[in-house]
Structure formats: structure tokens, C-alpha cells
Amino acid sequence: MKHRITRKEDLNAADYLIEVEASMVAERFLPGNFAVLITVPRGERIPMSIQKAEDGKITMLIKKLGKTSVELDSFEVGDSLEAVIGPMGNSPELKRYGNIVFASDLVCGHAENYALCKALQEIEGNHVTSIQTFPTKADIYPKKELSEAFCDEYYLTTLDGSCGIKGHYTEVLKDLLDEGKVDIIFAGGDIPALRDLAGLTEPYGVPTIVTVRQIMIDATGMCGSCRVFVDGEMKLTCIDGPMFDAHKLNFEDIINRMAMFKEKETRAMEYYNKKILPSVGFT
């Protein structure tokens, strides 16, 4: 079954939004789930964050990072993807947590932030705060794609201070922690920043749940590529995650192994830029 693109918009110079027909994923989506995309028959299987799911369609936030995301950016409304598979992974329990903070600084993070704020704000007894960080004012997403509409409190930060609060979400969070107003934190995005977040929140004893995106292939628990270590025990991001307790996670390992295919990714990008891609299928 082909998956037609029904909407595609730039979020900033590097990120874009894509809405595709994927009825099975849309019907069964829960906040925190992700999708696996195959853009073309010769394509790789890549995990993507889902921001929302409605009317048989899902919306994903994507960063132009590697060959596949750059190639997908050349697709237009009406074009189709080879496969949109999911929903994958687990969703956190949607219940009353009290004072919840969501923090994010990259596509994978902003999408979950949006989906979780929307779902958890509807539950009575939850006070939802969101902090979204962008590098500069120019990078801030259009307002309707931010989680602000679903929050009791909302903070926008830019690293250079060109808009909103100057600094990273961790800095705003520190103030909230000091005020003692946080019962649980959900966060996603840049992995080194999540490591710093874990270090920040641990002394306060506030549960901190982070979304991890490690390299995946099948995303069904078969290959072990996305293995992470939680309290020393091997877990698979695809079927045990993608959310883990930040205080138990070995971040150094994740950061190290994400570099494994860097050189190949560069080569794929060079190859793509030469535009000599043959149209081949799986044979």
C-alpha cells in the first residue's frame, strides 16, 4: 500500500513537517509512539517521531540530516512513500502525574512534546508545562506546531537569546526544580543535552523520562542495533523504548555508537548529491 503525502511544510531552514496517509498507524497511535518509514524501494528503514495522528493521517517532524531525510524533502504533496509502518514503540501511561514538565530541543522531542502535552493536559489533576528550545529566532516553528496551545505554562527559549528566554531548556528547568514545582519530567532531543538533564534532575529526585533515538533497522526487536543499557541491562530502543528512565541510562554508550555509520552517511549524501540514483526495487 502506498502512503500519499497530503501536506508538507518547512518548519525552519533545516526542519520540515510531513503529513501522510497511514490509516493503520493513525488509528492506533498513542503519544510517544514512532513510525518507521521506507521512502523508496531501495530505501532504508528509518524511525520518525509522530507529532499527531488524525483522520487516517499522521504528521511527522523531520530534520534534514542524512540522505533519506534530504531525499524525502524533495517529495511533494501527492507523492507517495513506499511504507509507513507502526505505530512502533511504547507510550507512557496516560494518567494523572501532577506537575508535568516537557522539554525538547530537536525534531525528535518537539514531536513527542506536542503529542504528550495534548494527551496529558486533558487528564484532570495534571498541570502541564512545556519548554521548547530553538537555536535562534529564525528556527522557531510556526506557532500552530508548538505545544503552547496544550499547556498551562509555556516557555520558549533560544540559545542566542534572539527570542524568548536566552539559553537552553535545562536552565529554565533548573528554576522550576528549585521552586519545587515538578513531579515528573519528559524530555527528548539532543542526546548530550538529555545526559545533562539527567545530571541536573537526579539530585532533586524528580523522575525523568527521556525519548531516545538510536540507530534502528527492523525496529521489531530483531537486530539489536538500537541496544541501550539501563542499569547495566541491555534494552532495545525499538521494543522496550523509546522512553527510558534518564537516571538509569548509559548516555555515553548511546552517544558513542550513534557515530558508527557517520562516514557511510557522508558517502550516501555525496552519492545522492551527484543525482545518479537508479530507480531500483528490492529483487
Partner: peptide, 22 residues
């Protein structure tokens, strides 16, 4: 992982196919 990359995803034809193997 090694075999899925090579067999299912055809990493031996990289970069013609997208999935790499090191």
C-alpha cells in the same frame, strides 16, 4: 544485524541501496 543489513536491506549494494554496513 549484520545479516539483516546485508540480506534484507542489501547493504552490499550501498550506496545504490540506502542501508550501509561497516
Amino acid at each position: 544485524e549484520f545479516l539483516i543489513r546485508v540480506n534484507l536491506m542489501k547493504a552490499y549494494k550501498f550506496p545504490e541501496y540506502d542501508t550501509p554496513i561497516v
